[in-house]
Simulated scan of single mutants.
Amino acid sequence: MTEQAPGLASDPSWDAGRSQGRLVVAWQNPESRRIAPVALLDHGHDEYRFRYLRPALLVPGFRPFLNFPDWRTDYRSERLFPLFAPRIMSPRRPDFQAFLRQLDLAPGATPWEQLARSGGRSSGDTIQVFPVPAVGADGSTTCMFLVHGVRYCNEGRLPPLVRGREVELVPEPTNPKNPLAVQVVVDGTPIGWVPDLLLDYVRGVREAGSVRTVVQHVNGPEAPPHLRVLLRLEGSLSNGRRPMAGSDWETFSG
């Protein structure tokens, strides 16, 4: 079953235009702080699509979003759904171009590109989105992600960082919240963590062999903590492995 969601009424600039792709929609439990994938958000040539993941039924404390009340509906819209549209900065704001620079996006970046890069996070919110990492036919893969938890390392103070500087990804099995956690380390100093939803992907890339992770962009202390450091990971996946695929990522509507 499909349902046509109401579009954003008047502004064509909200349309993602040329951008296409898939984002994982994640929900953070406000009590345990654990982050779990609950849905997929796709954008094709002319529509957006939202579908719940089957395992979302088993996520403790999670209930369907008000905008998407039915687990099994295949929601479609020509415009970005109201749940996600407010997570994009309007190009009419005077600080819009400065925000794009913080995200290391070109001046003509589309709303979809902005949403994918920023994660759609807002203060006190429980929703985040993550782009599915790209994988080539030869298994080569690349992924850009914002370092999580910068504010909790060294009181938010960062060592000197420049574009292209290599960083280490160090497993942290003693992490009290997630024994699978991976720290981002510069010259022995932790600066934050790999986002939880990328841990399986990062593990697969590390198992396949060579992996290189470098600073793509760094912002000053005036930027929100979750936007301070953008990293670029390059490597490969073996045996036809694909990120965010398999039974754990099946949707109700196929």
Rank of each mutant, 00 (worst) to 15 (best):
G136L: 01
P12C: 10
Q97Y: 10
E47V: 05
L105H: 10
N178I: 04
L41G: 01
P82S: 14
P86Q: 06
W193G: 07
D248F: 02
V184G: 00
N154M: 03
L161M: 07
M1Y: 09
P159M: 10
L57K: 13
L158N: 02
N29P: 04
V24D: 04
R117N: 05
M89D: 09
S140G: 15
G209A: 09
R101Q: 15
I88E: 04
P179N: 13
H43R: 14
V218Y: 06
D11A: 08
G21E: 04
F99N: 13
G120P: 03
V186G: 02
L115I: 03
A98R: 15
G139Q: 04
V218H: 06
W193A: 12
I35D: 07
P159F: 03
P133R: 09
Q216V: 07
P37K: 02
L230S: 08
Y48C: 01
T110F: 04
W27P: 06
T73S: 05
L227F: 14
T251G: 03
R93A: 04
P224W: 03
S77F: 10
V162L: 15
S247N: 10
C153K: 11
H217P: 09
R87M: 03
F81V: 00
G61S: 05
P107M: 05
P133Y: 05
L80M: 14
E78Y: 06
A98K: 13
H226C: 06
F145M: 14
E78P: 05
L83T: 13
Q20T: 14
L58M: 10
L233G: 08
R54F: 01
E222N: 12
R241Q: 14
W112K: 07
Q128R: 15
R212K: 12
N29W: 11
P133G: 04
R93Q: 11
R87W: 07
V229W: 08
D138Y: 12
L227D: 00
D187T: 07
E172W: 11
P82V: 02
F62W: 10
S238M: 07
